[in-house]
Amino acid sequence: MHLSGFIKQKSYEKIVYVLRRHPITFVPQVVMFVLLLAVPVGLYYLINSLFPNLLAQEVIYTLGVLFVSMYYLSVYLFFFTQFIEYYLDIWIITNDRMVDAEQLGLFSRRISELDLYQIQDVTSDIHGIIPTFLDYGNLSIKTASMNVGIIAYDIPHPNRVREALIRLADEDRKHHHNGMSPTTPQA
């Protein structure tokens, strides 16, 4: 499925930004993955040194192979799930609206959207040494409604996106205040 089909892109709509979390935020999961892969190797050397004849027995060896294989496959699955939860958090900004799709778990997904002309406040937050040097942080978008608001987490260049969003919101507001939709031909 293409992005245009995912957001049911309208004929006059143009996708301006497609935002995902900064790749640096996935590094801890990668490090954990590598450490988990090393665990059976360490265990093998430990068992070999403590009980040298244990793995020479066919039954113990067979059970060990099956267990290690299941362990590694589980680690791959766990890592893939973590990647899905990281990568499927997506924020799409068009010239008409903003779509927020968050993957909360493997079988839990939340999608919300708001029209740009309703935006009242846009705030960008960058906290910490690494986010400052790599220029990534959170973007909070608030509307007049108490219930509707979007937070884009750990996106690259939040200040740049904030400025673009304010500009796009102003342009969209002009269309609506003039009684025009982007499809209405101008006089």
Partner: peptide, 24 residues
């Protein structure tokens, strides 16, 4: 072990489906 493999393959397919269905 084969039962575990079946579960593993099922979840792997679900993961790939998620990636395709969300235009990712």
């Amino acid at each position: 072990y084969f039962l575990f493999l079946a579960v593993f393959i099922t979840f792997s397919i679900i993961h790939v489906y998620h990636i395709v269905a969300t235009a990712s």
